[in-house]
Design a protein around this nucleic acid. Sequence first.
RNA 1: GCGGUAGUAGCUCAGAUGGUAGAGCAUCAGCUUCCCAAGCUGAGGGUCGUGGGUUCGAUCCCCAUUUACCGCUCCA
Length: 508
Amino acid sequence: MATNEDLFRKIISHAKEYGYVFPSSEIYDGLSAVYDYGPFGSELKKNIRDYWWRSMVQLHENIVGIDAAIFMHPMVWKASGHVDAFNDPMIDNKDSKKRYRADVLVEDHLQKIEDKITKEVEKARQRFGASFDEKMFRETNPRVKEHQGKVEDIKKRLYGSLDKNDFAAVKALIEELGIVCPISGTRNWTEVRQFNLMFSTQMGSVNEDSGEIYLRPETAQGIFVNFLNVMKSARMKIPFGIAQTGKAFRNEIVARQFLFRMREFEQMEMQYFVKPGEEMKWYEFWKEERMKWHLSLGIPKEKYRFHTHEKLAHYANAAADIEFDFPIGFKELEGIHSRTDFDLGSHQKYSGKKLQYFDQETNESYVPYVVETSIGLDRTFLAVLSHAYREEKLDDGSERVVLGIQPMLAPIKVAVLPLVKKDGLPEKARLIMDRLVPEFRCFYEEKDTIGRRYRRMDAIGTPFAVTIDHQTLQDDTVTIRHRDTMLQDRIPSKEIAGIVRDKLAPGK
RNA sequence: GCGGUAGUAGCUCAGAUGGUAGAGCAUCAGCUUCCCAAGCUGAGGGUCGUGGGUUCGAUCCCCAUUUACCGCUCCA
């Protein structure tokens, strides 16, 4: 395990050193769990995104794309369940390190008082037998009345404070009531804090509470709210899919592990709308389809596995993750979820708009079921990068670090290198470069020895290096060096494009 | 978020028990022209993570803060 953590560290520093990934705002010490993609990283990320788009949208006639805004109407997050699920005030006990919902702690305390009341009532009932009037007893018994008064008082304060988001008052109440941690038995509490997974900001006038909007915590809702627009304008018939890629934001309590868990990240999602009852068929279809996609990245299947969810989220009736064997272990890369009609149904309820599909064959309309494929772009980037990274010991005893990224995804496809920077070699190299540049991302370099330049290209994962030497001036042949084997062929310069192009297909 | 550890040039690190820092590699310029890194000459680059305090004086002591890592917690 120690060596794997070591490997992970090496990949992170390699990513920084070679312009793949930088800590955000690094000159100001960085911003926790936020990263920027550099010159080569942004190319790799874009190549992965483009390949996904091509696979999902371009190659499926019944899948279309959209690009929804990050800002959405606040009601969207009510309907999706995000607002209610993450508005709880939390408090930690510093001794037991346990976290509780502050309101639940107080409510538990209230329950104890209620129990006392019940006990009094039961005692009295036994004493008075059949003639016992519970209502009368509750209204007149001084002890019960006192307890009851306390309960009312506490409830008023608790819910009053919660409504005003006055968490200091909630903590004061907990301290005043002498509530102790059930585990440590101490009153050593932290402040009461709210952990809302969604980032919020103000839209328009800032002086009204109603101006608060959220940055989307997932891209899926942008697809659901556009369901009708897309279906009508693109004249889609079920089953059909809507795809999009884009940023999402989650205010994770603990965000760590480099690109794996970031507060700002990019998703690539496709929501597939199907006839209710057929969802399991499509769920299985997309599980298989998506796994094939991963394998086409040139990564062996031992690196992947499915993880089927036992405990299902409120919106799902089946769910599986595709996990990848990162240096930090097998972790989720993509989710394939059968979301039923939860989302469309909920939006239908909250918006009052009919989100249904009219089936011409059966003459009936229904709310479609949804099978979702949702993949993390940054995580896929990390998977590609960590699989590609390798250190090699060469026969001559030297070492090299190579990014064995498959050519289709590599940031730079071809390096153009004059063997020396005189005798007209740079000029000749430029001519060859000019012919390649319109089709391939190229990199020209004449500084340093040829060996050092090869190593630099290995380190950023460039699959081909074309070297122009003195013979090139005579017969227009060059040597083309292959990154992974380090072998060279001498070929006419006209053939370079064909050889490179041939390797840019998936799986090569 | 809690606890622990760390933060000296782009990278890897050294340093003095408080008197304002150095190496190798890298970078840049020139020479060398050599098909798989580390040839020669020269140059640039650090308010020792940031802010405050103690002190005649702090990179070194104290406090706060930030970032990273490890453990816990969390992850609809």
